[in-house]
Simulated scan of single mutants.
Amino acid sequence: MVKVDEFSNSGLLHVQAANWMREKVYSHEWAPDEQIPTEHELMDILQMSRGTVRRAIQALVDENLLTQIRGKGTFVTKTVFTHPTGSTLISFAESLKSQGVDFSTKVVLHEVVPADKLIAAKLFVPVGTPTLKMNRVRSVDGKPILYIESLINLSLFPGLENVNFDTETLFATIERMFGKKIGHSNARYAARVAGERARYLDVPEQSPVLHLEQQIFLTDNSSAEWSNVWLSANNYVVGTVLQRV
Rank of each mutant, 00 (worst) to 15 (best):
I145V: 15
V241P: 00
L118H: 11
G51P: 04
V53T: 06
T38G: 03
E63Y: 10
E196F: 12
G159R: 07
A59Y: 02
V241E: 03
T167F: 00
L60F: 00
F7T: 13
L218R: 00
S150Y: 05
V125S: 07
K133M: 13
R192N: 04
S227F: 03
E149K: 15
E196T: 13
L146S: 10
N9R: 10
K97V: 00
K78N: 08
G86Q: 03
S49D: 13
V137Y: 00
Q47P: 01
R199C: 11
K117Q: 14
T85E: 09
I148C: 09
T79A: 07
N234D: 09
G86Y: 02
A172K: 14
V15K: 08
Q243C: 06
S49Q: 09
P114Y: 09
H110T: 15
P208S: 10
T52W: 05
F178N: 03
V76P: 02
L160A: 05
T173S: 15
S95K: 06
N186L: 13
Q206I: 12
Y189K: 07
T131G: 05
F103S: 00
M1A: 13
N235A: 06
R244G: 09
R22L: 13
Y147K: 07
L151P: 03
V125G: 10
G195M: 00
P158A: 02
L96K: 01
S232I: 04
K117P: 04
T131P: 09
E23T: 13
Q206V: 13
A191N: 14
A31M: 08
I216S: 06
W230V: 13
T173Y: 03
V80K: 04
D166I: 04
K97I: 01
V4D: 14
F7D: 10
M1Q: 13
Y200R: 08
T169C: 06
Q215F: 12
V101M: 00
D62K: 12
R199K: 15
A93V: 05
G128M: 06
V245H: 08
P114V: 09
W226D: 10
V53R: 02
I57T: 06
I174Q: 01
H14E: 15
E34C: 00
E168S: 12
F81E: 02
K72F: 11
I174Y: 05
L210Q: 14
T77I: 03
I69S: 03
S232F: 01
